[in-house]
Design a protein around this nucleic acid. Structure first.
Lengths: 147, 147
DNA sequence: AAAAAAGTCTACTAAATCTATATGCTTTGT
DNA sequence: ACAAAGCATATAGATTTAGTAGACTTTTTT
């Protein structure tokens, strides 16, 4: 399962993506629109900024904005920044690898082999999907099912 | 990430699968072979038994065994019994659905839409893969990379 | 019949992680 | 100077997970 942190990050980036190119948006606005605790969101946006995804502006009229086009930010990137585990096993994770301490010889582990396949399928989808795609999907869904 | 419980369950079922049709295997043997805390494994095997996957026999010469052929037990089944989350979002889970409390209209959520796709890909792989397949993979890996 | 070998069941504790809040600070615009 | 915003770190609270303990039941062996 993704953490709340990751989920909030995704939601926030979608909001910012819709607003790309315009004036920065305040944390408090995103927080209230998306029902995210403001202080928690602060930390999250800070992480995303420190990772180079967002710019920020202090003072009146300040806020956050995307540094690059939403089509250039993949969902998998966001999971990684916010520490969301993509792989279902630590020994299979590309970015947060850890030995499974119960497992002797990893290279011949059949269970691991299956979850490598799962990881590949997941990474494929999430790296091919950008924030812009998420926004597009949302639009399609609204058209399909009405607001 | 899968819980240790789920991982231990998978490991144990592989051992039992290799032994299908023969005399039952003792918890303590699986525990020491697979480096799993014995008491913890007890609970796990009990769950798997209560779910109808294993039979057990008490007393000397007792132990656990698979009820059906390892080709008839899918990996996804095991995750579900041991409570391992297949979906990455609660609002996307087929068997453990929960509303994302920050999300207003689920039907038009673009993030959700993406993770439905991820879930489908994952479920496909894990439901098409049986314990027998895991054993087969292990065998292939051993041949490929040596013991 | 007694003892030993194994699984059954429930409760509890400890550790880790996640979520959220608090507090004070810095920068920027008016 | 003041207010509006973000920056940074610390800490508390809640939840979940992992593991342990102990007493009980069934079956086999002696």
């Amino acid at each position: 399962m993704l953490s709340k942190k990751t989920r909030y990050a995704l939601k926030a980036l979608v909001v910012l993506g819709k607003n790309f190119g315009e004036a920065p948006i305040q944390i408090s606005r995103i927080a209230s629109e998306e029902h995210i605790p403001k202080k928690f969101l602060e930390q999250i946006l800070l992480d995303l900024r420190n990772a180079g995804l967002l710019f920020s502006k202090k003072g009146s009229g300040g806020g956050y904005g995307l540094v690059k086009d939403p089509s250039q930010i993949s969902v998998v990137q966001i999971l990684r920044i916010t520490g969301g585990p993509v792989a279902l096993l630590p020994c299979v994770s590309l970015n947060f690898y850890q030995k499974c301490d119960e497992c002797e010889n990893e290279t011949t582990c059949g269970v691991r082999d299956v979850f490598v396949e799962v990881r590949d399928a997941t990474v494929k989808i999430l790296s091919e999907t950008s924030i812009a795609d998420v926004i597009r999907r949302e639009k399609n869904l609204v058209e399909k099912f009405g607001l």
